[in-house]
Design a protein around this nucleic acid. Sequence first.
RNA 1: GCCUCUUUAGCUCAGCUGGUUAGAGCGCCGGACUGUUAAUCCGUAGGUCCUAGGUUCAAGUCCUAGAAGAGGCGCCA
Length: 477
Amino acid sequence: MNKKTRISRLLKSTPEGQTVTIKGWVRTFRNNQFIALNDGSIITNLQVVVDRNNLSEDTLKRITPGAAIAATGQLIASQGHGQTMELVADKIIITGDSNPETYPLQPKRHSLEFLRKNGHLRFRTNTFGAIFRIRHHLAYAIHKFFNDRGFYYMNTPIITGSDAEGAGEMFAVTTLDMNNVPKTEDGQVDYSKDFFGKPTNLTVSGQLEAELAATALSNVYTFGPTFRAENSNTTRHLAEFWMVEPEIAFADLNDDMDLAENMLQYVIGYVLEHAKLDLEFLAKRLENEEKNKPQNERSFPLLEKLQGIVENQFERITYTQAFDILRNSKPNKKGKFKFPVKEWGMDLQSEHERFLVEKKFKKPVIITDYPKGIKAFYMRMNDDNNTVAAMDILVPGIGELVGGSQREERLDILLKRMEEMNIPVEEMQWYLDTRVYGSCPHAGFGLGFERLVLFVTGMTNIRDVIPFPRFPGSAEF
RNA sequence: GCCUCUUUAGCUCAGCUGGUUAGAGCGCCGGACUGUUAAUCCGUAGGUCCUAGGUUCAAGUCCUAGAAGAGGCGCCA
């Protein structure tokens, strides 16, 4: 291929007077003269000025929205107002035509629903270009954060033979012929004939395996796809999503909370610095959207919201404190909650979390020390024998962004909990060995990556922040 | 899985208590235009009113069922 210059680079270095070749996709063609060209490297279009005397009528006709072109010419200071620089093209090659009668993207605003239906082309819009560039920067910032602090990136299995993770319904993985399933003598599926010789599933969490690595390498994290076969139909659940799960040895719940808070502040600070243009675009988009809403339903301006995360400490309260606040709150006393707050031990509902985060504290809230009855078997029992060392980070607009805990390192207590919660101890010996040999206090958390992208971009549907969303009834592409 | 709402031109939508030939903006197509910024101006074309059944003299409009989409709840990250 011939050399090309990416627009992002070109706008940084401002090589005025140079001859360059730009390759990208036409957004609009105005006045038979001005092409707004985008190559995805940056949200900004480059204006390509067409010299009509130099171009055939045929080529001119083929410069349509969506067409791929290569434009070569001199870069000059723009005479117009919308941009500082423009390319005066003396050569334009159409690499790929785009029929304007059938190309779904028009040079106008489209609804997110329409773009979801045309998911294969939505990358070519400003909004989705911005979202996926920000998604990249967030992923990079997460790796950088952990790497700079001596964490090792650990890959835990995607196909798992462990069925005791307890984090939700699982997708089965099998090569058995579904039309002719081998059966044992007592009529059960004969998994000994299956690929792995036993039932296997797609992972719902890498935590248990990460604990194995952490109790040797001290500080590790996973960042990979996870799968939940729940029939969840909401704006914040996916069947396939990416999760970040650090695990730290010789650490307690406070260390865990500090790590999570520092990480969120770091990665958000990172995108504020490195994805400024994209964030500004999304902020403006959100602002326009909010104009149609009544005053009391409007949310914080995006950039201020993100700046607030970086600059302010998160609120930290125990479940019991949260329970008291909620029980004595106005909406509870006035019967406004669908689920009244009465009995200690109840799980907090979305409406309760929203009240705490959006009305009471107006910033992220970390709730700790939940009743043992509503949390997982591996969470460390507190001295009160009633609560466990768990923590959830709740953020405005989304709810639970992070869920974590200090892990139960005491073998006898862990075994007792597993028995109480019907976890098959025999199948978990590999996990229990971390407590049998050289057990140590350790902690970790899980961060839903798409929920982070949702929060940072200000989008409202999680299906819009992952390139190829998977949810009940839908697995396109 | 449960609840609510939506479905009218390529897109975004209007269409009142059922009543002639279903409208607008944008886009597309044709024309004009060498400083435009979702360009502008002029002109044309474009509809299985989601599907099936029903009520009625008459259904885009009312009823029933289904499909698709959105939002809320639950499960959680």
